[in-house]
Design a protein around this nucleic acid. Structure first.
Length: 817
DNA sequence: GAAATCTC
């Protein structure tokens, strides 16, 4: 956030004027700072002299006065503080203050004496006078440099001020403005005026269109090479991020880019012109072309790094003393007794294998005992290595076992089921949202210190995140990756878990046996059939635990209403009943069903307390879904709670609007502005339900959802049902879902793994028997010569950037360690 | 067309 206009559109905004006493904390990546501020003036009451202010601030000086715009906020851990959304320098008005200000660090070369002299002439009006009439400075006998310093800082002609003004003029908000200036520094203006497309390449959050609008104002021609390159780059990016593929093809990129260029400015360009720039882009190393694939450089490298790091890990086998190995079975028996669990053969096998391998993949559907196995692994690992699992024993040392998951909710679940701390992978690696996934340089030197890392819900980990995770894993660590490969794929490009499992050389265990449900469950057999791409003939036939109701899109709401009423009559707890749907829009969509069900189950009576926010009404008793992670409240994205209290400001003017929500015994208070984090949850999206289970699931699928329908989605939805499943809608919609294979993204991770691991094997065989070296193997060695891809190599035409070329050599992106 | 991550 940089000095900018007072926001007037938000009438609820509070204002605070204060002097910065200290900067408690700052995150160098995104300008997030925590300040201690001496309060001078505010439009709210505050009992103390000081207040903590948080927000994103570009450049602040301790001791200076600022005007902050934002909200008071009750932080559960740090108490009441002010969250600033915007700020500006507050110019001093008293003569002594003005003197101090001018003599301060903002005006190098102006001392106390000079400052006094200036203020003596202009008095309290000094600053406005100098701003409005800089020429008046000439009468004071200052040096040229002093005059310039004053003018620059007071009249916004300094580098930064000008850049900021220019950025604001182009419509950038305070956060982007700060990021852009921090990135380009003194170059900012030059970049804006002459190379605006660099914004699209280098700043996360700025795309081609935005850069192109600036370029157009700078009269940069529609066929300027930098424009074409930016559009091509954006197209590769968009294609990969929309499809989940880690690479795309030349025809797709060309089509997308031509389209983008034409839509942004109505100027027709020739394909040849644009194609030429694709080659340049590859030559510059911004994209990588291999065979017929076009990668963003980041994903190309990430796949290689993953493969190489896995190879490195596998090269260092786990050495367990013979004595310990012999004790394993005995220890496992003790653990089973202690945890009161009877392990199945498959589970014992998984736990033992985990202990002996550097890397192990474990995949299994719901009910196959993944959690039980994780618990077993933790217990056995601790027993074998004589480790304490009491966090109090590790006040200073790193806890030896780390549990992590890609989502906050999955991490919370892990922590609950194991009784050990678990974190999100992002938190583990110290990643924060503002440097996006493609900024993979950050934290490259981080190395995790624990001995065992277990990651759950691996199917949700994408290529970028996994690459960063592996970069932090030392070869001394053991890594267990657990998930269900048939669930929904990751948001970002890649299908890491599926690719890893497809690589037969990686130690892996596939859990088939279902422990939780009776084998007779027809929900499970239906799930298995769907996994194989079959919609069984008995699909519409009612079973003891599932049924199908044929209806049209418009009949869905009444059909579901009747089911719910029936469930109520049968005294079923409605918290155990969950409606799932793929999409928000439409008659059978989530939003509409939520309104219908809310009015059915929790209608508005004459005395019902209700709060309306974001076009939704919230009433006491409503079932709601929390949409972001709030670890401080122990509430995570995807958690479902119930509204147990509403306080309205109109009833009690001393208190603001409040909604109190109970999450399984944990009561959390929401203010009006927090209600954006909440949605009605009578019906939730299948994506949000991933990771949760319900006794009764009601799943409407209609043809209108067809773009969303695929096998993983259907599998994920029906496996949320523990006891009962009611399917309704159009039969063809279910068929469409089964027929459409979703985890079939275009990636080259499997190929990289094969390449990397083949090298390892050939090296091993060479070391085993020197005589086996022959011409064939020499060529393998040659092929595997390690080098880093550089533009020099491309320039030397060792790597041909032209589309359709062949024979790119494996590249070693080995991690250090 | 839905979807994850976030600092004291």
């Amino acid at each position: 956030m940089v000095n900018s206009q007072i926001q007037t559109e938000n009438s609820q905004q509070q204002i605070l004027i204060g002097k910065i006493q200290a900067i408690f904390f700052e995150n160098s990546d995104n300008f997030y700072k925590v300040l201690q501020v001496k309060l001078l003036e505010a439009d709210f009451t505050w009992p103390e002299e000081e207040i903590v202010v948080t927000g994103n601030f570009a450049n602040l000086s301790e001791g200076e006065k600022y005007r902050f715009f934002g909200h008071l906020f009750e932080h559960p851990r740090y108490g009441k503080q002010f969250q600033a959304e915007n700020y500006q320098t507050e110019l001093p008005t008293q003569t002594t203050e003005i003197v101090n200000y001018l003599a301060g660090e903002n005006f190098p070369g102006i001392g106390q004496k000079t400052a006094e002299r200036i203020v003596k002439v202009f008095g309290t009006a000094t600053l406005t006078k100098l701003q409005q009439d800089p020429a008046s400075l000439s009468q004071l006998g200052l040096s040229k440099k002093q005059r310039q310093t004053l003018i620059d800082n007071l009249t916004n002609t300094g580098d930064q001020q000008q850049a900021v003004i220019e950025l604001n003029r182009f419509g950038f908000g305070s956060q982007l403005t700060a990021r852009i200036y921090e990135h380009f520094q003194k170059e900012t203006l030059a970049v804006l005026h002459h190379q605006p497309y660099r914004l699209a390449f280098e700043i996360n959050g700025i795309g081609f269109k935005r850069a192109d609008r600036i370029a157009e104002q700078q009269q940069i021609a529609a066929d300027d090479p930098q424009r074409l390159q930016a559009a091509l780059y954006q197209s590769v990016y968009d294609l990969c991020h929309n499809t989940g593929d880690t690479y795309t093809s030349a025809p797709s990129v060309m089509q997308q880019a031509m389209d983008l260029l034409l839509r942004s400015r109505r100027v027709t360009l020739s394909e040849k012109q644009v194609a030429d720039q694709l080659v340049t882009l590859a030559a510059d190393g911004k994209i990588v072309v291999e065979k017929r694939r076009i990668y963003l450089r980041h994903y190309y490298e990430a796949e290689w790094k993953i493969a190489e790091q896995i190879k490195t890990l596998l090269q260092r086998p786990v050495k367990l003393p013979e004595k310990k190995v012999q004790a394993i079975d005995k220890l496992l028996t003790e653990i089973a007794l202690q945890l009161k669990i009877t392990y199945g053969a498959e589970q014992l096998q998984a736990i033992k294998t985990a202990l002996k391998n550097r890397l192990l993949l474990i995949t299994g559907g719901p009910g196959t005992g993944k959690t039980t196995i994780i618990n077993g692994i933790v217990a056995l690992f601790a027993a074998v290595h004589d480790l304490s699992l009491d966090a109090n024993d590790y006040q200073t040392d790193e806890f030896p076992i780390v549990l992590a998951a890609p989502t906050g909710r999955a991490a919370k679940k892990m922590s609950e089921t194991t009784g050990l701390p678990a974190v999100t992978i992002h938190r583990l690696l110290g990643l924060n949202g503002s440097d996006g996934q493609d900024n993979y340089q950050a934290n490259e030197n981080l190395t995790l210190a624990s001995q065992l890392l277990i990651v759950d819900e691996m199917s949700m980990v994408d290529t970028s995140l996994f690459e960063r995770l592996l970069a932090a894993v030392p070869t001394s660590m053991q890594l267990i990756l657990v998930g269900d490969q048939d669930q929904l794929p990751s948001v970002g490009p890649g299908q890491v878990f599926a690719d890893l499992l497809a690589c037969e050389k990686l130690p892996q265990i596939r859990l088939e046996k279902i422990y939780r449900q009776k084998q007779s469950s027809t929900i499970i057999s239906l799930a298995h059939a769907i996994k194989k791409g079959i919609l069984p003939a008995d699909f519409t036939k009612n079973q003891f635990d599932r049924s199908f109701i044929a209806c049209s899109e418009h009949q869905v709401e009444s059909a579901i209403s009747q089911i719910i009423l029936y469930a109520q009559k049968k005294k079923l707890n409605l918290n155990d009943v969950q409606v799932l749907a793929p999409m928000y829009r439409g008659q059978a969509g989530i939003d509409h069903l939520n309104v219908i069900l809310q009015n059915l189950v929790n209608p508005k009576g004459t005395k019902t307390k209700e709060l309306v926010a974001n076009q939704q009404s919230f009433r006491i008793g409503d079932k709601v879904l929390h949409l972001v992670n709030s670890p401080e409240n122990n509430v995570f994205n995807g958690d479902i709670g119930q509204i147990v209290g509403i306080n309205l400001a109109q009833d009690n003017p001393q208190k603001p609007d409040q909604v109190i929500i109970d999450f399984d015994g944990n009561e959390v208070t929401y203010l009006r502005k927090d209600l954006t984090k909440i949605k009605l949850a009578y019906c939730v999206s299948i994506h949000k339900a991933q990771g949760s289970e319900f006794k009764l699931v009601i799943l409407p699928l209609v043809n209108m959802f067809h773009r969303m329908l695929n096998r993983n989605l259907l599998y994920t939805a029906i496996t949320r049902a523990k006891k009962m499943l009611i399917l309704l809608g159009q039969k063809e919609a279910f068929q469409t879902a089964v027929d459409h294979v979703s985890v079939n993204r275009k990636t080259s991770l499997l190929e990289r793994l094969s390449q990397a691991l083949r090298v390892k094997q050939s090296q091993q065989s060479i070391s085993l028997s020197q005589s086996s070296i022959n011409h064939g193997q020499t060529s393998i060695n040659e092929e595997t010569t390690k080098y880093i891809l550089t533009s020099q190599l491309i320039a030397n035409e060792e790597i041909d950037p032209l589309i359709g070329m062949n024979g790119l050599k494996p590249i070693d992106f080995k991690h250090k360690n």
